[in-house]
Design a protein around this nucleic acid. Structure first.
Lengths: 192, 192
DNA sequence: TGTACATCAGTGAACGCGCGTTCACTGATGTAC
DNA sequence: TGTACATCAGTGAACGCGCGTTCACTGATGTAC
């Protein structure tokens, strides 16, 4: 209803981002083309070029949204985890995010990994620092430099193994349990 | 030199597989098209259809080769690991494989994950069983059903984080160390 | 308040591309007698 | 051993498709006076 039926859109930039997320959700990562996004936004194929230099720029912007959403979800799981159990909750949130929004997750962590895109690099650094911080808080005696990537890899690997069908995500509860179980097991704390 | 300069190829089926692996190595996973493979094999675009039903069939066959090669590499790292340190060697071999042949690794574990392809499903099952077996041998007192996927995820996650540039693979030795360190740390065995 | 005009944000047609796949075909191979 | 013929494994031209991107354009907006 807020849409003015006009020639000028108002905020096509973010409308395109929204459209891109919809395309991802409905048709998967491989369907994320500039034309598909423009189509869904109800706009001509050339219109996006007013707002994004090229396809890569749009995709990177989408990935940035993904990183923001992921951070939000992790923060919602626990704002400042300080015990292994709380860390496990964050881990569960990470994997849930991947299963909820598989295509977006793939865009964030998949192939192209354009190292020249500042936004993406910054997002990666932010995740790295965040993880190191919460690991340091949960395991004050550990070397977070070593432990944080290990935990990240564990959780990230679970996410991808589920996504790629190497582990069966029978039901959400079982997934949660496996994730927190793996984190706990692997950290030597034997209870979930 | 063995190539007969003839109309009939002799063994186009495997020649196409070899060509596909070359394409992967040189141009990456996104370049793996039927036409590109045919081109590299020196054959018309329609020729592959004598041997593979469609693109998906070829890609699945390539993935199967990948699984075979991976199994070979893991076996070479240690034929029958029975200590955490030996398990770490296998883990290192897994990540090295991913870094050596990133495009192949992506084909094996990437998006399409065609659940209907028997060959792929069988390969996945084989990996699962193999992992469970070696984990059970290294940790006789553990529950391999729970521990094996956790270790797989850890190693798999490291592989993908390197591949996607989230962890920097500064030099091979450092990678090896991080992998075996992570496995060791995570298993409570404190030395690499 | 009203008009002239620059700027902005779209349009839509067109380009060239590589792709998967099909088709009728033809050259080479192998088998039956 | 030699010939007739079926089968096999290629060719190459063509199809339709969706893509990224460009271009000259035009309608809407906002500013100067």
């Amino acid at each position: 209803m807020p849409a003015k039926s006009t020639y000028h859109h108002g905020d096509l930039r973010t409308a395109l981002l929204d459209a891109a997320l919809e395309v991802l959700e409905e048709d998967g990562a491989t369907a994320l083309s500039l034309r598909a996004v423009a189509r869904r936004a109800g706009v001509s194929p050339a219109a996006p070029y007013r707002h994004y230099a090229d396809r890569e720029a749009l995709v990177s912007a989408v990935a940035a949204v993904g990183y923001r959403d992921l951070a939000e979800r992790l923060g919602a799981a626990h704002p400042a985890p300080s015990t292994p159990a709380q860390l496990a909750d964050v881990a569960v949130a990470y994997v849930r995010f991947a299963l909820d929004r598989p295509a977006l997750f793939r865009i964030m962590f998949g192939e192209p990994c354009d190292r020249d895109n500042d936004e993406r690099v910054a997002a990666t650094v932010a995740v790295t620092l965040y993880l190191r911080e919460i690991v340091a808080r949960c395991f004050p005696d550990s070397d977070p430099e070593a432990l944080a990537p290990a935990i990240w890899a564990l959780v990230h690997g679970l996410a991808f193994l589920y996504l790629d069908g190497k582990l069966e995500p029978t039901d959400p509860a079982a997934v949660d349990e496996r994730v927190s179980g793996a984190v706990a097991a692997v950290l030597g704390a034997s209870d979930s």
